[in-house]
C-alpha cells in the first residue's frame, strides 16, 4: 500500500486515511447521551420491523426444524438433527437439490452472458439505440404472473408459438412442459428472460461508465475491438459483474413464482426446486418441521455461495 512508497512525492493525489478503520468505528460509537437517544430513535422502527418479520421467523424456523410437528404446526417431539438427517439421505430431496443447482447455474450463466452481450451491443452510440435499450430492459416492468402466462402461451403444445414454428419448419412438436428435460429448459428460459432486463440495465450502466479514453488509448496502441472487450470492458466492469452474479444466483435459488405458475415442480419432480418444495411440504403436506429444516439448509447453501463469491470478489476485483 501507500505506506511502502519509498520516495513519497509531495504531489501525491491519493489521500488515504491515516487512522485505521477500527479507530473511526469507535469514534462513531463514542456518542454522548443525547446522540444515543437520537440514534435509538431513528434506528428503532427498522430494528422493530426486522425483529418482527425477519429475526423472529428465522429463529422460530430454526427452533421448529429441531422438532416434529403436528399438522397445525405445533411442535410435538424433540427430534434433534433428525429432520436434517432424513432430508439429506432422501433421494427425493437430493433430487431437488440437484435440479436446483442445475437451474441456478444455468440461469446465472445464461443471464450474465446474454445480459453482457446485449449491454455491449446497446452501449454503442447509434441512431435509434434508445429503442433497443428500452426493449432490452423492458422485462423489468413485467410481473412474474404476466411473464408466466406469456410463456405458457409460447410453450403451449397445440397453439403455442414454438409449436407453430416447429410445424412451419416441419420439425417434431415438443411438448415442452410435460417432459422432464424440456420442462427444465423451459423454466430456465423463462427465468433468464425475466432476469435479463435488470441485468442488462445494470451492465449497460457499468459499461457506459468506463472512460472512453481507455478505449481510445487502446485503439491507438493497436488493440482490436475484441481484445478491448476482453481486456478493458470485462475487467473494468468486473465489480458489477460480480454484483449481478450474486444477485442472480441468490434470486434463482429463491425462485418460486415462475415454478408455481409454469410447472408446479413437475413433471415427476424435474423442476421441484428447493423453495417450491418447502412450500409444498409446509402448506400441502403440513410437514412444518421438515419444511423448516429445508429452509435452514437453503439458507446455509445461499450463505456459503455468497461467502464464496465474496472471497473471489476480494481476490479478483481489486483495483
Amino acid at each position: 500500500m501507500l505506506k511502502n512508497v519509498a520516495e513519497p512525492e509531495p504531489e501525491s493525489l491519493d489521500v488515504t486515511p491515516t487512522t485505521p478503520k477500527a479507530k473511526s468505528r469507535t469514534k462513531v460509537f463514542a456518542l454522548n447521551a443525547k446522540d444515543k437517544y437520537y440514534a435509538l430513535l431513528f434506528l428503532g422502527p427498522s430494528v422493530l420491523l426486522l425483529a418482527l418479520f425477519v429475526f423472529y421467523p428465522m429463529i422460530k424456523t430454526l427452533y421448529i426444524s429441531l422438532f416434529l410437528t403436528s399438522g397445525l404446526g405445533k411442535t410435538t417431539v424433540f427430534a434433534g438433527l433428525g429432520n436434517y438427517v432424513r432430508l439429506l439421505t432422501s433421494a427425493d430431496y437430493l433430487n431437488s437439490l440437484g435440479v436446483t443447482l442445475i437451474y441456478v447455474f444455468a440461469v446465472t450463466i445464461l443471464t450474465i452472458a446474454l445480459g453482457l452481450l446485449l449491454a455491449h451491443l446497446a452501449s454503442e452510440t447509434l441512431p435509434g439505440i434508445g429503442i433497443f435499450r428500452t426493449l432490452f430492459s423492458a422485462t423489468m416492468g413485467v410481473s412474474v404472473s404476466v411473464a408466466a402466462i406469456f410463456w405458457l402461451f409460447i410453450f403451449n403444445p397445440s397453439t403455442g408459438f414454438l409449436s407453430l414454428l416447429s410445424n412451419w419448419l416441419h420439425l417434431p412438436v415438443i411438448n415442452w412442459l410435460t417432459q422432464p428435460n424440456t420442462a427444465m429448459v423451459a423454466v430456465v428460459i423463462t427465468t433468464v428472460w425475466m432476469n435479463l432486463g435488470f441485468t442488462f440495465l445494470i451492465l449497460l450502466g457499468a459499461i457506459q461508465s468506463v472512460p472512453t479514453s481507455l478505449y481510445e488509448a487502446a485503439s491507438v496502441a493497436g488493440a482490436k475491438p475484441g481484445y478491448q472487450f476482453f481486456h478493458i470492458t470485462i475487467p473494468m466492469i468486473s465489480p458489477t459483474l460480480f454484483f449481478v452474479s450474486i444477485i442472480t444466483l441468490i434470486g434463482s435459488f429463491k425462485s418460486f413464482g415462475l415454478i408455481d405458475l409454469i410447472t408446479k415442480g413437475g413433471p415427476t419432480n424435474a423442476t421441484n426446486m428447493l423453495v417450491y418444495r418447502i412450500y409444498k411440504d409446509a402448506f400441502y403436506s403440513g410437514n412444518f418441521a421438515q419444511a423448516s429444516a429445508e429452509s435452514i439448509i437453503l439458507t446455509v447453501i445461499i450463505a456459503l455461495f455468497t461467502l464464496l463469491q465474496f472471497k473471489i470478489l476480494e481476490r479478483r476485483v481489486n483495483y
Binding site: P211, V220, A221, A223, H231, M236, Y319
Partner: peptide
C-alpha cells in the same frame, strides 16, 4: 492502430486493474 503513432492522454488513460508493468505492455501485448 494502423497509423503507427502513440498518444498520451490528459487523463493518462491508465488501466486501473493493471500494474505499471502491464499498463506499459498493454499495446505490445495487444
Amino acid at each position: 492502430k494502423d497509423r503507427k503513432l502513440s498518444m498520451v492522454f490528459q487523463s493518462y488513460a491508465l488501466y486501473p486493474f493493471l500494474n505499471v508493468w502491464n499498463n506499459v505492455a498493454f499495446g505490445l501485448n495487444a
